[in-house]
């Protein structure tokens, strides 16, 4: 497959891979959360690209789906950062190495 849709899909795959690499290798929990946000955004880009180049661009499903996805990402960021602040208060660090002690 080639053409504009493939370009957007490859770009989204690259964005996803960058976010994954960061989430897997960085130590700081906030940067890990940023990586997760990047992966979510790559998925959103895929949804918009498929909607735009799909067989039925009059339908609104693609845009609506992305709006809901962005809303969920906002809620996730708020709760995730709240958790990070709480854990920081306990361990005085945001390194994910420390979080291993949270294992029940």
């Amino acid at each position: 497959m080639s053409g504009p849709l493939a370009q957007y899909l490859v770009l989204a795959a690259l964005l996803f891979a960058i976010g994954l690499a960061g989430a897997l290798s960085r130590r700081n929990a906030i940067v890990v959360l940023i990586g997760i946000e990047l992966m979510l955004n790559a998925a959103n880009l895929n949804l918009i690209a498929f909607w735009r180049y799909g067989p039925n661009p009059e339908a609104l499903e693609g845009v609506i789906f992305v709006i809901f996805s962005i809303g969920i990402a906002a809620a996730e960021a708020a709760v995730g950062l709240g958790l990070i602040i709480t854990v920081y208060r306990h361990f005085k660090s945001t390194s994910v190495e420390e979080f291993g002690e949270l294992k029940g």
Binding site: M1, S2, G3, P4, L5, A6, L9, V10, A13, L14, F16, A17, I18, L20, A21, L24, Y53, G54, P55, P57
Partner: peptide, 20 residues
Amino acid sequence: ASMVFLILAFAVQGSELGAA
């Protein structure tokens, strides 16, 4: 991450699905 990217990119390139 590079493995995931390569798999996704090959899947996109090899896909039969064309843009409308």
